[in-house]
Design a protein around this nucleic acid. Structure first.
Lengths: 259, 259
DNA sequence: CCAAAAGTGTTTCCTATACACCCATGT
DNA sequence: ACATGGGTGTATAGGAAACACTTTTGG
């Protein structure tokens, strides 16, 4: 007990709600706690902040230590300060959400996480502390944020299909959209570029171009050729988001999709 | 130094950015610090959180102790955790914004505030700590929030004129609106009710109603008969916001004014 | 050939925007 | 009378919503 203060101090932790999308479902990254309290329960990755790091740095560090996930978009959304949140002592938690492409990471449990894995957002196990409340607040936060910014693209591969994008919007916003109107609005925003590798390959084949112009199988960006789930249906076209064009534009405070 | 921990703990404080509107200008409530560090500097009201209160309770308590302002709408918007924010020790600050009618309060400096008074938002004095950054972040937060919720009404008297409302929207959003289009959109929302006391009194007068139906001077709600600033111009009509109708409606996630 | 999913275009309606004149008030 | 500020309506254009059929693919 070497750290003494004139007045009582709460402990300060960070927790991260990492949302991951795989083209089909929205997931949240959880760890199984390897130590008491709530040993054996699933929980959000996070932990005590160090004295020489900001909250965001702490959240990044803990996330990497516990789950091997790093270099991601992280955004603070709320600080939880209810008395009695943690049975050990007064703990105040600064919470972040992250939006990632699920396939980009190899999740490895580390530090005092016994396990770490993705759960589909509405199939979560019972959670430690008030982490269910933190997750609900995070879902509200990204839903609200989605109305103002094109954050959905952080959850998608570099190339993606419009049905994928629409499904993601519907999962986050909790409503449905008309396919045609959705596509029209998205395409008319001017920030989507068609990158149809299907067509490229067909073109190369038909015109008998030199083999050096053909795309190597390994070079295909993930998601460029999405496989259909149930063995049927037409192949969708693929697009990428022109993030540079968006950032250099003054449309940043215009809604991209807010129907 | 009676409070000892196994690991170092940061101190946790709250700060409140209280916005007040008087029908003409947007103000922020500041205190002059009566103790070091930054003794004599102007700063946001706030202070150390107690171990048995939530952050919001702490913010309310400090605000009342230091400025005599209480019973207000308070909303957490960001937590500031940069290392070195406070020269004394590691301090993490949970920040809130509040929206009030400036005239509703008698501001009295208390606790360790030497003085307390309102400043027009873009005529602020130099501030202690990183409070300028906190205020900028608060302004961003209410600007963003205004796009999704009718929070402006928390800054207005129970009855107000459309020019007042428009001026407030313009001050917060940092842009201008066409008067006619603004009024049309606001009125078509269905959440404004005309409460024109000018007309009421005229009606009573003309129809010679019994004196008991006449409104006593002292009973007139503040702002019901706004005085024009420079001694000229037509008297505006006054309205009130039907907050109950709004809350019972499902329009809550629809934009009220987001042009 | 059938089922499942994706592509595509048109019409209607509503909302956003732009715009100008008259009216009430106080000096 | 005049200056200041507030009230009001209309016309146009652009975006949102509603809506059905065809094409591709895998089984």
């Amino acid at each position: 007990m070497n750290y003494c203060y004139e007045y009582p101090h709460p402990a300060v932790t960070t927790d991260s709600v990492v949302f991951g999308f795989d083209g089909k479902d929205l997931h949240i990254l959880l760890i199984e706690r390897g130590a008491d309290p709530f040993k054996g329960s699933w929980a959000l990755p996070g932990g005590f902040i160090k004295m020489d790091e900001t909250a965001e740095e702490g959240a990044r560090r803990e996330l990497f230590e516990e789950t091997n996930v790093r270099d991601i978009f992280l955004e603070q959304f709320h600080t939880f300060s209810k008395v009695g949140r943690d049975p050990r002592e007064r703990v105040i938690t600064i919470a972040f959400y992250a939006l990632v492409r699920k396939g980009d990471f190899e999740v490895i449990a580390g530090d005092d996480a016994a396990r770490a894995r993705w759960f589909i957002v509405d199939e979560l196990p019972p959670l430690a502390f008030d982490h269910d409340e933190i997750i609900e607040t995070a879902k509200d936060a990204i839903r609200r944020r989605l109305k103002l910014d094109p954050i959905a693209f952080r959850l998608l591969d570099e190339s993606f299909s419009l049905p994928e994008l629409q499904r993601l919007y519907e999962l986050i916003s909790g409503r449905t959209y008309d396919r045609r109107n959705f596509q029209k609005k998205m395409l008319s925003s001017g920030y989507l570029e068609r990158v149809d590798f299907n067509e490229e390959i067909k073109f190369c084949h038909l015109s008998s171009l030199d083999a050096k112009y053909l795309v190597e199988p390994g070079e295909l960006p993930k998601g460029a050729l999405p496989k259909n789930e149930k063995g049927s249906g037409r192949k969708p076209h693929t697009f990428s988001f022109l993030s540079k064009k968006f950032e250099n534009s003054d449309d940043k405070d215009k809604d991209l999709f807010n129907p």
